[in-house]
Amino acid sequence: MLVLLAPLLLIPAPALAADSTASFDWASASSRPGGWTASVHGGWPWSGLRAQVGLNQRLTLIGEVDTAVFVRFQPSAGLALLLVGKSKGRLSLEICAGGLIQGGVLAQQGPSASLRLRLAGRPAPVGPYLAVATRHTFLFHRTQTRQIGTEQADVTVRWEHRWSPSVQLGLTFAPKPHIGFDIGLDLNFVDVGVVALSLPGFHVGIHFGNPAPKARGS
């Protein structure tokens, strides 16, 4: 996937407008170089934290952790690639690696990777956003069988793949450049084919940061 996306880095980067807002940056997962945004969102069943910092005009570093009712945790980190950066809207693609840690009766954990496409309209002061994601998790199971008459256990390893796509649709509000809010609907389909039904959810988020840092030396 990274190889396929590499040619995109060769296309001249769109220059992000200096009058961006923390909410616009958050919704589009894109920040100007040195610009940063952090956010907290809470709702049902998903809540989480997210932080991002712009590396250059096209790449933004992202770290986030999402949790479903504080039983399922999905920490991940990665890069967002700005595909389209216009003053009225942005389109970006995130690639993240992370993990899944789920407690409770149906405990599971394993590494995961996700791909997320984000489309955001500039909040002026209200703007829409849409995020479509696909998350792939790998669960590794080890079975140790202690056989009769032997000291060493017979070890077998089995793995399975879990697919959890999601769609997020919402509105951002940017009353100030450095602070903003969003409300959204969360359609997270958890472990498709294993979990029969995933209920839709909602969230409210707050974003803050410095979307337009001053250039060095100025």
């Binding site: 570093l61 770290g63 920490p75 991940s76 980190a77 990665g78 890069l79 993240c96 690696a97 992370g98 993990g99 899944l100 840690i101 405990a107 599971q108 954990q109 394993g110 590494p111 669960l139 590794f140 199971h141 080890r142 079975t143 140790q144 069988t145 202690r146 056989q147 009769i148 256990a153």
Partner: peptide, 22 residues
């Protein structure tokens, strides 16, 4: 960032670890 991603990824160990005795 990449170091953090590696730590997060590598921290996941066995999803289940079953011991069976015959």
């Amino acid at each position: 960032g990449l170091s953090a991603a590696f730590l997060v990824t590598s921290s996941g160990c066995w999803s289940s670890d079953t011991v069976i005795f015959e």
